[in-house]
Amino acid sequence: MTDGAIAVVRAGLLTTVQDLGRPGHAHLGVSRSGALDRRAARLVNRLVGNPESAAVLESTFGGCAIRPRRAVIAAVGGAPCPVLVNGRPVAWGASVRVEAGSLLEAGWATSGVRSYLAFAGGIAVEPVLGSRATDLLSGLGPPPLADGAVLPLGTPTGQRSPVDGTLPWVAPPLELVLRVRLGPRADWFTAAALKALTSGVYRVSAASNRIGLRTEGPALERVRPEELPSEGMVLGAVQVPPDGCPVVFLADHPTTGGYPVVAVVDDRDLGAAAQAAPGTPLRFALLG
């Protein structure tokens, strides 16, 4: 059941519908997908009284502008950005009431990459395999938002937000540190490559997207030149393509791949990876 909708006035660079994804289908070639910064998606949902798994909007860099067709409680979190209602600044990281026909704008991210917009009731597009997330690799879920699109809203739970006040504004680190565990294919690389991975400084590449965080830095040299037969890939896998620059797999990653995975990023650091802008210095720190 839906009771209302939002109209997309400005879709921005890339805004998609996201929730906590569709785990459990990797054996069919379906990536997990879902919000890249899952902590932020959960928090904005709590701000508006939604279950944490409700569908939200994930905007990339440039924000977006939304006109709800009925009055709705909304919240913007994730990457800090100006938040405006009918051109007037309102709080970021807090629930705000947006009247029917008013314009809610999330502006350009002042730091970080991905801002999240939650609406009470959640975005109620038809789920696919149990999730409303847009998977840009598989093409599942709704297409990225386009100017003029209209998205249905679900029925608000009527519950008050369990979050009091506003979200803490976490300044993004000047350097992204991703904790990694070596394997499964660390033995495909030279000792010098493993040292370079865990002591070298990389930068987040502008070619990063929802599929992977691409890096620029010391190329990792292999001891085994042969092709790796396709094998299963996990979220956070650090895959090394032929150019030697590590790619950290994010939510829309392929489920199988033929390049060796040298290490796996700790799950707790993937949200920070999703918020690291191109050019951010990046270190991989060896865990245990």
Partner: peptide
Amino acid sequence: REIVPAARTVL
């Protein structure tokens, strides 16, 4: 959560 067979592995 996931059982993912591939060319000669199972994840």
